[in-house]
Design a protein around this nucleic acid. Structure first.
Lengths: 193, 193
DNA sequence: AAAATCTGATGATAAAAATCAACGGTATTC
DNA sequence: GAATACCGTTGATTTTTATCATCAGATTTT
């Protein structure tokens, strides 16, 4: 399990991890298996762990008054899952995260994040991930205010084609902020071009 | 000019800056004045500076095929302005940033960011800002996929009431991803409650 | 001070998307 | 292997929002 994470870290850092760093990583990340449909985080709970997805697929969503789920994030292999706000501030989360497929995940607690960040290479990784994050989020915001449904879908298909393979259309639709019916029509329309 | 920034830094860090840190900050941040309607960053250019707004107001926006501007971010006092993607990757930016009011800004180059981050207190600030950033962006994404125009406006009014004072309605509308006409109706409707 | 631009409001109409409903095909469950 | 839930599609209708057009007050420019 941990090998995938070590590789992920090395692929982002300027210098590979030392043996002792690897030992630390193995110590502070706890493997966990989450079965399909089970929660990794439930609304109202504090997010106690961030998790690195080794294998599987998860979704993060809010639920509105009418009980409708709104997917804010999707996670597959090599993504970091969790609710940053709740994790950092120790406040109850507004989101649920559950497994869409059986998922193997390496979890880390807030206390161990401090250990993690004390290793320069890992602190670097953390910053660089935050950077990518900020960039990706702004793109998504820009798409949401400037593009019609059809083009948002096209952009998603181009940026994260994996998502379309791993998640059903009603999940993708929710992620795009449209209904499943609209997505279905958008797709059939796109095919005709 | 620099005092505002020093204060901002101290308010975020666990320990106040030392005298020598302050000297460094004064050295690596260059004051600049941007007149109303002038660009801080123009689409197609590489974003060479990040800027801390000391006084004034700016907006960041993309422009679509039809020439319509779509406001992705708004900046006032104590906000950090710039296009992270372009700044970090050194790629041409897809955005424009211009001054909506005459603006005093402290700018820092990519090279000096390295110096900045070599000071632990400042590196901490940078991480903590990224964190807040990630949290705020996710909230905005959640709002954009789960709330109708009226509630998105209400949320903005609650979260950043300053924006409503400093920017005209067509800017706010664009930021929310709706037209100025819709915003106008949403507001008159909200008043009646 | 007159002309031009900017801002916010409102009405009429068009377009986009949501909702409601029904249908087959595919998995899953019992 | 029958029953049930899930998934994607399509049609009819309603709701939401965009577009187009006009107008009046305020501000800026010349």
């Amino acid at each position: 399990m941990h090998e995938t994470l070590i590789q992920h870290i090395n692929s982002h850092a300027s210098t590979p991890l030392t043996e002792s760093d690897i030992d630390i990583v193995k110590n502070i990340f706890t493997p966990r298996r989450i079965r399909k449909r089970q929660y990794f985080l439930q609304e109202g709970d504090v997010c106690k762990y961030m998790g690195f997805v080794v294998k599987g697929a998860m979704r993060q969503y809010s639920v509105d008054d009418k009980g409708t789920e709104h997917i804010v994030r999707l996670y597959i292999e090599n993504w970091w899952a969790g609710d940053r706000e709740s994790f950092v501030m120790l406040t109850p989360s507004n989101y649920n995260i559950d497994a869409w497929e059986d998922t193997d995940i390496l979890t880390i607690t807030q206390t161990n994040v401090a250990v993690f960040k004390s290793i320069p290479a890992l602190n670097e990784l953390s910053s660089s991930l935050d950077e990518k994050h900020a960039i990706a989020f702004l793109k998504r915001i820009n798409a949401s205010i400037s593009l019609p449904a059809e083009e948002r879908y096209a952009e998603l298909a181009k940026t994260y084609p994996e998502f379309l393979q791993r998640f059903p259309q009603h999940i993708i639709a929710s992620y795009l902020g449209i209904t499943k019916e609209t997505l279905s029509r958008v797709r059939s329309h796109a095919l005709k071009k």
